[in-house]
Computed example of a mutant assay.
Amino acid sequence: MKDLLREAGVPPLLRKRWPLLCAADGELLAVPGVAVAFRHAAGPGWWPLWRPSRVDW
């Protein structure tokens, strides 16, 4: 995940807090704004969106 998030341009400070969308059995479905598991991808135009709230660090 570290490399995937780095390559996607996610700032280091956010990497530990980036959400992972998982199925009830723990299978990774998507990393919002970065990737969707191929086997769970829908047709063109579908993309999970996550917008972090503003946090004062």
Rank of each mutant, 00 (worst) to 15 (best):
A24D: 15
V10G: 09
K2Y: 13
P12T: 01
A8K: 09
R15M: 06
P11D: 04
K16M: 08
V10C: 09
R17K: 12
P12L: 01
A24Q: 12
R17P: 06
A23R: 04
E27T: 05
P19R: 01
L28M: 13
K2Q: 11
P12M: 02
P19A: 02
P11M: 01
A8C: 10
L20P: 15
K16P: 10
L20N: 15
L29P: 08
R15G: 03
E7W: 01
V31Q: 04
L5E: 13
L13N: 11
R17Y: 08
V34G: 11
G26M: 06
L20A: 14
A23L: 09
R17D: 15
L13Q: 14
G26C: 09
V31N: 05
K2G: 07
W18R: 01
R6P: 10
K2L: 08
E7Q: 08
L5A: 02
A24F: 05
A8F: 05
L21F: 11
V31Y: 07
E7A: 07
L14E: 14
G33C: 04
G26S: 10
L20M: 15
L4Y: 14
G9W: 00
A23G: 10
C22F: 13
G26L: 05
W18C: 02
L13H: 13
V10Q: 13
G9P: 06
G26R: 03
W18H: 05
P32G: 01
E27C: 06
L13I: 03
W18P: 02
A23K: 04
P11K: 05
P32M: 01
L5M: 03
P12R: 06
L21W: 14
G9N: 09
L4N: 11
L28I: 03
A30T: 01
L29Q: 07
R6S: 10
P19V: 00
V31P: 13
V10A: 11
E7R: 08
R15L: 05
A30N: 06
V34Y: 11
E7I: 00
C22D: 10
E7M: 06
G9A: 07
E27D: 15
V10S: 08
L4Q: 12
A8W: 08
V34N: 14
K2M: 09
L4W: 13
L5R: 00
R17Q: 11
V10F: 03
L21H: 11
E7D: 14
L4T: 07
E27P: 02
V34T: 10
L28S: 10
A8D: 13
P12Q: 05
L14G: 09
R17V: 03
